[in-house]
Design a protein around this nucleic acid. Structure first.
Lengths: 195, 195
DNA sequence: TACTGTAGTGTTAGTCACTAACACATTGGT
DNA sequence: ACCAATGTGTTAGTGACTAACACTACAGTA
């Protein structure tokens, strides 16, 4: 509830021009309550990354595949799940809310920076799921390089998807970005996609 | 001079535990002077990206090569230039200073976030240098995807280089990261390297 | 009914990054 | 000696965020 008011105000007046106190007033609570639910102002906007979801998908991939393929499939799959199941409310409303947050995220430096840093945490989760940090340093390095590159490509897809106002399918967009970066032969269309 | 004091204090006491006022006192100036030279506290640490340098290298690459190859070569080349020519002082001292800043950048969330966002600006510069934003939307998209993925891999190399205390060669590390992400056939060893 | 722990909230007073507006000093050119 | 530009300091703010403490609502328990 607080978050909905926050995003609305941020869109209306701009992120920087809106104070946390104003968000609190709009939501009918005290500023302190806002901070208890959202540790920082940025957290009022940033989209949930669902690290766990991605990690599960990574584990489910075949170790026969190259790293980029495994990570790419997991990301595409996770995106599909995230978009389709939404957050429990009206799906269309959810998509619009997600798009509004994404647009803020892309256009506001502070939000963009923190989001990119969150991706960094997701990268670590992916490497962990790949078992990369277990032993060899070189294996870990390769996993980190592949994961970071895949996440960067995914971010490009997110930006494009937001620019298109969600008209296209997000998983397809991610696949397209991965193909652009890594080439056709390495990228699939999701774990259960038709190839 | 201000920056040197800042980095020293940040290393000694921690970034968050050091106030800008303390930096100013250490440097013998007023806090306002610090802000005039460095718009934000983060800027006291963040390493110069030299967007222009990278852009020039991009333009110098052959358009016959795949995007990732062109960007990768430019990044490797730029890193070599940056490390070798330093900042005018003692090269060893420069390397240590660079390493100190990198370590802070990696371990401090606020710095890491802003640095990743700076990479995002570098990505735009690369796409511009590639001529990506001139016409077709799809071409721009491919350029963004490739550039972001290359920069992410480079970041992995930076982290590893810092962990190794600069023992390895940074350009080699970047080449290694690019190879890990994109495969052997797409990555060179710099524009004038031996292949 | 009264008792108690717990979770959510509010209040207050602070710290610190950062900005704006204005005054002062130094320097280099005419 | 005059002027403009540049760098610096001072002051008074705004706003994100923290810490400490008190209060309320509500659960389960006797």
């Amino acid at each position: 509830m607080i978050q909905a008011h926050a995003v609305r105000l941020f869109v209306e007046r701009g992120y920087d021009a809106t104070t946390v106190t104003e968000v609190a007033e709009a939501a009918g609570v005290s500023p302190m309550t806002v901070y208890r639910h959202f540790p920082t102002k940025e957290d009022l906007v940033l989209v949930d990354q669902n690290k766990q979801l991605v990690a599960e998908r990574i584990v489910a991939t075949s170790t026969d595949q190259p790293l980029v393929r495994r990570i790419g499939d997991a990301l595409i799959d996770s995106a599909a799940t995230l978009v389709s199941r939404g957050y429990g409310n009206d799906p269309e409303e959810n998509t619009q809310f997600l798009l509004a947050r994404l647009r803020l995220m892309i256009s506001t430096p502070a939000l963009r920076a923190k989001h990119l840093d969150n991706n960094y945490a997701l990268q670590q989760a992916i490497v962990d799921a790949l078992g990369g940090d277990a032993g060899d340093d070189d294996i870990a390095f390769n996993a980190h390089a592949a994961a970071s590159a895949c996440l960067a490509a995914m971010h490009t897809a997110l930006v494009r998807w937001a620019e298109d106002d969600g008209q296209t399918e997000l998983p397809d967009m991610i696949a397209k970005a991965l193909t652009a970066a890594f080439g056709d032969e390495v990228v699939g269309t999701g774990a259960d996609g038709q190839e």
